[in-house]
Structure formats: structure tokens, C-alpha cells
Amino acid sequence: MDRAGQDRGQQFLVERCPSVSAAFEGSEGEEIGLARDLARGFLTEVQAVHGLPVSVDVMGTVLLVVSEMVTNARKYAPGPCLLTLEVNEGAVEVTVWDSAPTLPMARAGDPGRVGQHGLEIIMAVCRSVEMHREPVGKRIKAAISLSDDQLGDAARPL
């Protein structure tokens, strides 16, 4: 029996999740802007081409998370970082890989502390945050819901 012949005429469609990736290695300030531009363009395409709704609040939250994650990767890890954006299960997943093996830790609240609030912000506005050591460096993934009613409280204006 020819198993390959059994499937003639049948089409198997696999819908791929929209995604985009870019590597950054250079001037920190310039790269943050480029990362934000990549995210903005990606979400605009997700809405225009794939028909998924992306509200102003979701767009702003994704841009904030991308800024914080890429800033931290460029500031605390030597070498390049890799940013991947993907739509999966009703969320935009923002994943950043960098070469430093140390996983970040949220610090205790301190209203007098200037800066170093990035992870606290990310954890407040995302529906999930995962951190994993890799054979080289680490990978951090944050998921932001495409639905405004599932955004974290910190993502909503007062």
C-alpha cells in the first residue's frame, strides 16, 4: 500500500502564528527606538493583515514591555540581544534573549529608588512572565493579552 498515495488531493493547512525577530548590537539608545519601531510595525501588520484587534492600550503596553526588556538586555549583558514578537493564544509574546546567565529579580518596593523598576513594571502589566537560563545566557518571555479587559491594572490609565 502506498501511504503517500492515500493523501493525494488532501490539503493540510497549518496556520502559523504571526511573528518577527531582530538582533540588536550597538548603541543602546538607538536600539530601543528600533525595537519599539519593530513592535509597532508588527502589531500594525497583525491588525491589518491578520485581522486581530490591537487597541491603543495594548499597543502602548507592548511598546513599554519591549523598551524595558531590550533596555535591560543591552544594559546588563555583553554582546547582542535577540527580540522576538509572536501572537499566540490571544496574547503578544515578547521574548528577549541575551548573553548574561543571571536571571533578574524584582526588588522590594522603594519609593526613593530611582530606576531599576523594569521587572516590576513588566510583571504588573503582563499576564505572564517566564525566565529561563539557556546554554548561553537567558531567555525572558512576557505575554501581553490582546484583550483590553485582561491587561494588568498598571497598564490602564487612572
Score class of each variant (00 low, 15 high):
2 D>Y: 13
5 G>H: 15
6 Q>D: 13
7 D>S: 15
7 D>V: 11
8 R>F: 15
9 G>F: 13
9 G>A: 12
10 Q>G: 12
11 Q>W: 13
11 Q>H: 06
11 Q>A: 11
12 F>M: 14
12 F>G: 10
14 V>M: 07
17 C>L: 13
18 P>L: 08
19 S>A: 15
20 V>M: 14
22 A>I: 05
22 A>S: 14
24 F>K: 06
25 E>L: 15
25 E>Y: 04
26 G>T: 02
28 E>A: 07
28 E>T: 08
28 E>Q: 10
29 G>H: 11
30 E>R: 10
30 E>Y: 10
31 E>G: 06
33 G>D: 07
34 L>Y: 03
35 A>E: 01
37 D>T: 04
41 G>E: 06
42 F>C: 00
43 L>A: 00
43 L>N: 01
43 L>T: 04
43 L>R: 01
44 T>M: 02
46 V>A: 01
46 V>F: 00
46 V>G: 04
48 A>D: 06
48 A>M: 03
49 V>Q: 03
53 P>H: 01
56 V>T: 02
56 V>F: 11
56 V>G: 06
56 V>R: 03
57 D>I: 00
57 D>L: 07
57 D>E: 01
59 M>D: 04
62 V>I: 06
63 L>R: 00
63 L>G: 06
64 L>K: 03
64 L>W: 01
64 L>H: 08
65 V>E: 00
68 E>M: 02
69 M>K: 06
70 V>D: 05
71 T>W: 12
71 T>P: 08
74 R>Q: 11
75 K>L: 13
77 A>S: 13
77 A>T: 10
78 P>N: 13
78 P>I: 12
79 G>S: 10
79 G>T: 11
81 C>N: 09
84 T>G: 08
84 T>K: 12
84 T>C: 14
84 T>I: 07
85 L>C: 08
85 L>A: 10
86 E>G: 03
92 V>E: 00
92 V>C: 12
92 V>A: 06
95 T>L: 12
96 V>E: 04
96 V>W: 01
98 D>I: 01
98 D>H: 05
98 D>F: 00
102 T>Y: 11
104 P>L: 11
106 A>R: 09
109 G>D: 14
110 D>G: 06
110 D>W: 04
111 P>Y: 07
112 G>C: 08
112 G>V: 02
112 G>Y: 12
112 G>N: 14
113 R>W: 08
113 R>P: 04
117 H>C: 14
120 E>F: 15
121 I>R: 15
122 I>M: 13
122 I>T: 15
124 A>L: 14
124 A>R: 15
127 R>W: 09
127 R>A: 11
128 S>C: 11
129 V>C: 12
131 M>G: 10
131 M>H: 12
132 H>S: 15
133 R>H: 12
134 E>T: 09
135 P>M: 14
137 G>E: 05
137 G>D: 08
138 K>Y: 14
138 K>H: 15
138 K>W: 13
139 R>G: 09
139 R>H: 14
139 R>T: 15
141 K>G: 11
143 A>K: 06
145 S>N: 00
146 L>S: 00
146 L>T: 02
148 D>A: 03
148 D>R: 07
148 D>F: 00
148 D>M: 01
149 D>G: 00
149 D>S: 04
150 Q>M: 03
151 L>I: 05
151 L>N: 05
151 L>P: 06
152 G>I: 04
152 G>S: 04
152 G>R: 02
153 D>K: 07
154 A>Q: 08
154 A>S: 08
155 A>F: 05
156 R>P: 04
157 P>G: 05
157 P>C: 00
157 P>F: 07
158 L>R: 09
